[in-house]
Design a protein around this nucleic acid. Sequence first.
DNA 1: CTGAAAGCGCTAACAC
DNA 2: GTGTTAGCGCTTTCAG
Lengths: 338, 338
Amino acid sequence: MRKAVTLQQVADAAGVSLNTASRAIRADRYVSESARARVQEAADRLHYRPNVLARRMRGDPARLLGIFVNAIGWGVVHELVDHISDEARRLDFDLVVFSAENFHDRRRVGTSDLLCGLCDGLLMLLPNQDDGFLEVLERDRSNCVLVGFAAREIGLPVVVVDNRAAGRMAAEHLLALGHRRIAFIQGSRATGQSSERERGYAAALAAAGIAPDPALIGAGHFDPGSTAAATLALLALARPPTAIFCANDGMALTVMEVLRGRGVRVPDDVSVIGFDDIALASYTQPGLTTLRQPSREIAVSAVHTLLRMIDSGQFESTRRTYPPELVVRQSTGPARAR
Amino acid sequence: MRKAVTLQQVADAAGVSLNTASRAIRADRYVSESARARVQEAADRLHYRPNVLARRMRGDPARLLGIFVNAIGWGVVHELVDHISDEARRLDFDLVVFSAENFHDRRRVGTSDLLCGLCDGLLMLLPNQDDGFLEVLERDRSNCVLVGFAAREIGLPVVVVDNRAAGRMAAEHLLALGHRRIAFIQGSRATGQSSERERGYAAALAAAGIAPDPALIGAGHFDPGSTAAATLALLALARPPTAIFCANDGMALTVMEVLRGRGVRVPDDVSVIGFDDIALASYTQPGLTTLRQPSREIAVSAVHTLLRMIDSGQFESTRRTYPPELVVRQSTGPARAR
DNA sequence: CTGAAAGCGCTAACAC
DNA sequence: GTGTTAGCGCTTTCAG
């Protein structure tokens, strides 16, 4: 690996001082044309590229945002990253993604710090409420915006879909189709979003005069294994549900797979509704009814909030909520009389 | 945004010199127990966290790898990122992802440099052959491995699936099913992989005594719009193809959509075969026959090559090729007599 | 216009 | 054991 060319080398080659070289490179005024030309020539010849690390260590802005992601590709996360990226680029900021299962992992702390120091601001996507790094960011009043976080009050700006309303809408859609035994499959508790969705679901049921039934609540943890197990448990009930609401689309797909394997038809025997409206949702057979997050608005809002903090130097800790949208496809239908 | 605590502040608070504080923090020997304890206490109290940027600027290793990605989520890219991430973490390296449409974009050069300087090594996923940054990496003999690059000889290590063999396998599968008029829909020329797949396809046809027909080659550019147009053009031919081989799965899905819209049945009327075996491929109706890349092996190999270069300081520029695997699903079937 | 010097935060080498 | 010094590559005072 060839060693990088430094400005000093360029200066030497051009026969000027380090400082003059610096001015020439940055197209600063106060440089004679002849000096500028000689430096430029030397820089080109030596393939000089400024050391951005050094600049950054002086505190110069990097025009760079960092995104922390728990698992990229996890459905809606990918979409958010895309939209954030678009908006950031539009505003002439670059983007670096740091993906980690758990940011508070000891070995990962260094990288977190590194990225913090490197970037002008940070976006945390679906952060885990147990992540110790959140407290650090909160304490430092960092330039940081949380996206998709609903676990607790926190001294950092948050942008999030109205999970509670969305849960209510999902349940109301099923109630309107005549369903009375509606199951809910929870995701993990990481971001608190699943719990909020569950609260909305429970509220809608209560409003319809339906008593909560703990047997109809399954624990899916957002992963296929436990989701399949939860589905089978629901099917094994004396009075199984006629509809299943899943805290995200991935689990809904798993549920549909399990049902198909058991010869249960969707939506004829059981209706299934998901959450997020990932790309796959429109490709499955039958198409998945789900709640779409306005991920574009959420992403744009998060970027703007962050840039406002960066530009103004003022810390804010607002909370912006965006309305979801029901997308009806073929996986939900009228409740069959039993 | 609170200012970061520096080691100097910790040292002052603990009543020792900067250097002793440094030793204590790094658990260096040659520190008295009492000093160590006082420094530790001060550091905790002030919430000191070392500035990784500063360490890095001295040349200390970061145990950090960088991935450059053209568009994350683009099918196989996501899978590669996942596997690379797993392997890197297993070897106690962290990972930073930099996503850019074109790395040679003027405004992006700074970020590229930054990441280069930051990371111990770099992985370029499906780099664009026109990317000027490749020449820089090549010239500097950088710690950098290219994944999924088949455009040209290059003075950097490359790990890639055997695209030519894969193209041949796809065509041979269709030939074995009795197809004679087999179309190919090209992707973009960015990485050179599509061209290699096409060469394999052409070779298989030639071996079967079939003369190449330019009308059967469509330009899909890996995007839905042009792929749909190419498909319609194929359908409009006097003698349309009975099978279509697409340079990736995404385009194959688009082709299937278009065919469905036109009332053309898959595989009864036309067989379709893709490339990559993305997750969606097994969810479509009918399931998509495709060629799977051994993305896990490719990822692991890339990481190992990179770490070898980092550890040894020795530059290498080997080229490792991995065999593809034919995955037969329902989108390909016997050619219908016409 | 140009050059010398200070400093960003940290650690290795060198004294005491 | 501990403190002092130099230096990573760059830009910003501050003098000439």
